[in-house]
Structures are given as C-alpha cells and as structure tokens.
Amino acid sequence: MTALFNFQSLLLVILLTICTSTYAHSITPGIMDRNKDGLLGIFWKCARIGERLSPYVSLCCIFMAGSLFMGR
C-alpha cells in the first residue's frame, strides 16, 4: 500500500519530511532560504514548522515510533 492510502503512513511521511527539512536547514540555511517560493518552498515551510514546534514534533516522533513498534 502506498502512503497516500494508509493514514498512519501518510503521517509518518509528513513527520519525516519535517524532521529532514529541519536538519537540512540547520546544515545549509542559505540554500533553503533562497527557495521560499515554488515547489521547494514546501521544504522551507516544513523546516519552519520543525524549528518552531520542535517539542511537539519530537513528541510526535516518539509516539509514531511507539505505535509502529507496538503495531507490528
């Protein structure tokens, strides 16, 4: 099944995108700050979410890891 049809997998993909974008922005901020608009702007927005809501994102990561571990 693809991530679009399984809600838990879709949430996991979104969470991983936020975490990856935040990490990439901390390593190379200039590249992401230049691409605030357009298709690559999605990653800039995900990086902002990860930076500003980092406690909630980390709690979601822990929750998703627990639910994936317990579910399988």
Rank of each mutant, 00 (worst) to 15 (best):
G38W: 02
C61S: 10
M70K: 08
S54W: 15
M70H: 13
T20I: 12
V57H: 04
A47E: 01
F5A: 06
T22L: 12
S54Y: 15
V57M: 05
K45I: 14
H25Y: 05
G66H: 02
T22V: 15
S58Y: 08
I27P: 00
G66A: 03
G38M: 03
K36L: 07
I27C: 02
L4V: 13
L53G: 05
M1K: 09
L68D: 12
T20E: 11
C46Y: 03
Y23C: 08
M64S: 06
L39T: 05
H25R: 05
L10E: 02
F5K: 12
K45S: 10
P55L: 05
F43V: 07
L15K: 02
I62R: 01
E51D: 14
T28H: 12
P55Q: 04
F7I: 07
F43M: 04
P29N: 10
L4S: 05
T20D: 06
M1H: 11
L12M: 13
L10G: 06
K45Y: 13
P29S: 03
A65M: 11
Q8F: 07
I27D: 00
F63N: 15
G71H: 13
A47P: 01
T22M: 05
A24S: 13
L59Y: 06
I14P: 05
L16A: 13
S58C: 08
C61F: 14
G30T: 09
S67D: 14
D33K: 06
L68F: 15
F43W: 04
R48P: 02
L68Q: 12
G41Y: 01
M70A: 14
C46A: 15
A65L: 14
T17Q: 04
A65I: 10
M64R: 01
K45L: 10
I42P: 00
I31A: 09
R48H: 04
F43K: 01
S67E: 15
M70L: 13
K36Y: 02
L59N: 09
G50I: 03
A3D: 08
L4E: 04
S9D: 05
K36T: 11
M70C: 12
R52A: 12
R52I: 15
L40H: 07
I49M: 00
G66V: 07
W44Y: 15
G71I: 08
L4N: 04
P55I: 06
T28C: 14
F43C: 03
D37R: 03
E51N: 15
K45R: 15
A47Q: 00
S26H: 13
L12I: 11
V57P: 03
G66Y: 01
Y56S: 07
K36Q: 06
G66T: 07
P55G: 12
L53I: 08
L12E: 04
I31K: 10
I49Y: 00
